[in-house]
Design a protein around this nucleic acid. Structure first.
Lengths: 208, 208
DNA sequence: GTCTATAATTTGATAGAC
DNA sequence: GTCTATCAAATTATAGAC
């Protein structure tokens, strides 16, 4: 495969990523994608056969990147809290580069759940440690405090992902109040999330 | 307007709400809506002229309901923390009834931002107290601890809204682990969010 | 008000020249 | 590999009978 060929394919994938992420599968138009890639519409079909296959490639890439962020949970050389801290750093940095990533993945999954189960099964192969399992084990050895791990994981993901999902609405509301929520806020967000983690992992008041 | 007429219009709106929320504007098909409403496709146009106008009605209704949840911030008879607690109860109960609400609103806004600014401007007329303003005032009078109100509001909305947004993906991941995240978890979620609020509002360690 | 039938438009996909 | 021209299918919207 020549250099030019690969270049066109990448231009298409890049454009497809942008358009699919913004508009979703149905909202994205092949014409838009080819325009943004600066090539002819017929070439999309030449390289990817049809819309669905092009979408799949974009979607799988996004999902894989998202799951990649969680590899740090498996780093047994670090204490549990430190692993979670690093995950927070990773995922917030990652999402500030791809702010529409969470929304894209979730929206497409909510429309077509079956698709997801296949892809996840594939990604789980990587023998990674699940955060919930990790927390349960750390509670048994008293490395961390006792709490509901499911709720905690939900809270954690909420704190990290939602600010980017809700950026459009939040910006609109906040900006009308004279405050500005931009990338510079990421540091504050990381700090706040870690504060929450430390609070949950070290507090001693939740023993039912 | 007769009884039967109103009933048809409501059946359409109900069906349109379901279909638009699940599939978004582009993914929703007029045929699906009419099928689900149990009426003929042409009637959609008779009552609402076109797809866009039908969508607008659904969207505005959703947005208004969401903003309605925040009225409790203006209840000056309650202490600040109690207002926020009640908001958490309200919004989580509300979202468990309409779990696709947040996603729907955010997704459509991210596609068409201009639309939103009009609608928000309209909704802000209601002389309601903005939570950020409320927090700032409470900090000045030392009713609550000092912290960044913007990050806090972001955290708060994250903790409440994201679990419902991410329900499809979270269910898929968690369930494969043998755990189940269902409506019964709402109480635990409320408790956890309130714990976070109390922690932020009463802690004394953040003075830079 | 409600339906059937059909027009008009959009859009994904293909054929074939270069 | 890339383009133009065109097809085929899906979908919004309308016309007109009842």
């Amino acid at each position: 495969m020549g250099l030019k060929e690969k270049c066109t394919e990448e231009k298409i994938l890049e454009a497809a990523k942008n358009v699919f992420m913004k508009y979703g599968f149905y909202g994205a138009k092949m014409q838009d994608i080819s325009n943004q890639a600066g090539i002819n519409k017929a070439l999309l079909h030449y390289y990817f056969r049809n819309k669905e296959k092009l979408f799949d490639q974009v979607f799988e890439g996004a999902l894989a990147k998202y799951f990649e962020q969680m590899l740090v949970f498996s780093d047994t050389s670090l204490p549990v809290q430190e692993r979670i801290f690093r995950y927070v750093d990773n995922v917030i940095t990652f999402l500030s580069e791809y702010p529409q990533m969470s929304m894209f993945i979730i929206k497409e999954i909510s429309i077509n759940q079956e698709m997801f189960y296949e892809k996840v099964a594939h990604l789980k192969k990587g023998s990674r440690i699940h955060l919930i399992t990790l927390l349960q084990q750390a509670m048994e050895t008293d490395e961390i405090a006792q709490f509901d791990p499911v709720i905690f994981v939900m809270n954690l993901h909420s704190l990290c992902a939602y600010p980017f999902i809700a950026a459009p609405i939040f910006k609109a509301i906040i900006n009308t109040n004279g405050v500005d929520f931009e990338d510079a806020e990421n540091l504050k967000l990381k700090k706040s999330v870690k504060e929450f983690i430390a609070f949950k992992l070290t507090k001693t008041n939740e023993k039912k």
